[in-house]
Design a protein around this nucleic acid. Structure first.
Lengths: 255, 255
DNA sequence: AATCGCCCTTAACCAACGTCAAGGATGCGA
DNA sequence: TCGCATCCTTGACGTTGGTTAAGGGCGATT
C-alpha cells in the first residue's frame, strides 16, 4: 500500500513503497503539536494555557479524501484546523461547476469567520487529501473568548492581517494577468531571492488553476510560456532557473 | 458656484445652482452623527460612552477632492471614517497606472487593518469627492481597546463579517464574467426584489469599472449589452425594467 | 459664443482565456 | 499484461476583454 499523497510523500505511511527521495509536497513540517497550532495566524502569540482552555471541547478528526466537511448554508457551530492533508473551500455554480476559493494546507484554520458571526457557512468544504483535522466547537471557543478578552484582542490583529491578505488577493485578481498570478504563486513558495530554486507544488494542477482563477488548460499554457522564461515543470515540482529575474519580470509588469 | 459633486447633489452647498430634482448619488442619508458612526461594521453594537472614549484624540477633516490621505509604505498610525464624500484606495503599477481596490462612501471606515497590525499602509488613499472625514489616532484607539476588551470582542465579529465580504468578492472575480459582476453591483444598490427600479450610481463609471475589475470601455460595452436585458443608463443613474428577471439571469448563469 | 476639460461611448484590432476534443503519461487493480 | 482512472498537455476555434483612437455631450471658464 502506498501513500494517498501521490505522487510524493512527506510522511510516508507504514509500508509505503513510494520512493523516499522524491521532492515532498509543499507543506509545513512538524515540530510539537501545540507549537503548530500556536503558529496559526488566529492564535498568534497566545499563551499555552489559554490555548488549552480554548480547545476544551475540540475534537480530532481523521478524514479521508472526498469527505465533505460542511456545505454552504449549514449553520456554522465550529471551525477547523488543518494539521495534515488538504481541504478545499469552494462554491458551486448552478450548472454544477465548482470554483475553489481557497485551499487550506497544514497548518491553517478555516471557518472562524462564519462561526464568529454566528451565521452559516457561505461555502462548501471538502477534504482533497487525507487529512487530520481539529474541530473546535463554537460554544467553548466563544465562552473562553468572553472570559479572556485579551484573547479577543490578539485575534483582532491576526484577523486584520488576514484581511490584508484578502485585499491583496482581490487586487491581484483585478490587475494581474493570469501568468503573473501563477508566477507570483510559484515565487511565494520559495524563500530564495535569486539564483535557481526548486519548489514543490502544494497541490495538483487542477486545484492550482482554480486557486489562481483560471482553467486547467490555461494553466498548462501558462506554464508552457513560462518555460521560455526559465520555469520548467518537473512532475509536481517546478524548477525556476533564475528567481531574481522572474521576480523582476513580475514586478515591472504591473505589480 | 455649484457643488463639486457633479453632476448631482444630495446636499447642495449654499448658492448651488444645480437642479435639485435630480437623482442624488447613492449615499447614506444622515441622522445624528453618533448614530452614523455606530452603524460602522467596526463599531456595531458599541455603547455610546465607549465610543466617545475611543474617539478621544480623533480629529475631523474637511478634504478637497484629490487630497492624498496617505500613500503606500507610510507608517499607519491612524485610520479614517468617511462621513461624507468619497475616498478611493488604490495601487499603482510601475508604469503609472492605478487600480482601485475599494471606494469608500459614507458611512464607512478604512485603514484599521493596517493600523491594528502596526504596520504600514499597503495602498494609496485619495479623496475623489470633497469629503469630511474623521481621523482616529492609533494611540488612543489601541489603549481604549486594551482597557475595554469587550470592545475588541465586538470588533471581532464585525471584522469576520468584513472577512466574508472579501471572500465573496474574490469568488465573484474568479467565477463571474464582468457583465454579471456589473449586474450584481447594480442589483445591490436597490432593495427591490422585482418590478422596475431606478438606482443612482455611487460613483462615476471610471471608478465603477475599476471596482468590478474591468476598464472603462468594457463597462460601456457591458452596459450596452445589458440594455437588451432591460437595463438602461440615464445619466449617472440606471433604470432596471425588471429587477426580478435580472436577478434570475444572474442566478442561473453561474452564481 | 467659443473653448477647454472631463466623462462617456463606439469601433477596429489583437492577445488571451474558455471550450471542446483528442491524446499522452502514470499508477492501480484485475 | 491489460484495462481503467486520474492527471496533464496540446491543438483548433470562438468569444471577450484590453488597447488604441476618434468623437460626442456637457458643464465651466473666458
Amino acid at each position: 500500500m502506498t501513500c494517498p499523497c501521490r505522487p510524493l510523500c512527506l510522511v510516508p505511511k507504514p509500508n509505503c513503497t513510494r520512493p523516499a527521495n522524491a521532492l515532498p509536497r509543499h507543506r509545513a513540517t512538524g515540530p510539537a503539536l501545540a507549537e503548530l497550532i500556536m503558529s496559526l495566524p488566529l492564535f498568534d502569540g497566545l499563551e499555552r494555557d489559554v490555548l488549552q482552555r480554548l480547545m476544551a471541547d475540540a475534537t480530532a478528526l481523521a478524514c479521508e479524501r472526498r469527505t465533505l466537511l460542511f456545505s454552504a448554508g449549514t449553520t456554522s457551530d465550529c471551525f477547523y484546523i488543518v494539521l495534515d492533508g488538504q481541504v478545499k473551500l469552494f462554491a458551486l455554480t448552478p450548472d454544477g461547476r465548482e470554483s475553489i476559493v481557497e485551499v487550506f494546507t497544514p497548518v491553517s484554520s478555516f471557518g472562524e469567520a462564519a462561526m464568529l458571526s454566528m451565521g452559516v457557512f457561505p461555502l462548501h468544504a471538502e477534504v482533497i487529501e487525507d487529512a487530520t483535522l481539529i474541530r473546535v466547537g463554537r460554544k467553548a471557543f466563544v465562552s473562553t473568548l468572553r472570559q479572556d478578552h485579551a484573547v479577543a484582542y490578539r485575534m483582532l490583529s491576526a484577523l486584520t492581517r488576514w484581511h490584508q491578505r484578502l485585499s491583496g488577493e482581490i487586487w491581484h485578481l483585478k490587475v494581474q494577468p493570469p501568468w503573473q498570478r501563477v508566477a507570483e504563486f510559484l515565487l511565494a513558495l520559495t524563500d530564495a531571492r535569486e539564483g535557481e530554486a526548486l519548489v514543490a507544488l502544494p497541490f495538483n494542477k487542477e486545484v492550482l488553476a482554480s486557486r489562481v482563477g483560471i482553467r486547467r488548460e490555461s494553466l498548462s499554457r501558462v506554464l508552457a510560456r513560462l518555460r521560455e522564461m526559465g520555469v520548467r515543470t518537473e512532475g509536481n515540482a517546478v524548477r525556476i532557473d533564475d528567481v531574481g529575474s522572474l521576480r523582476r519580470l513580475c514586478a515591472e509588469a504591473g505589480a
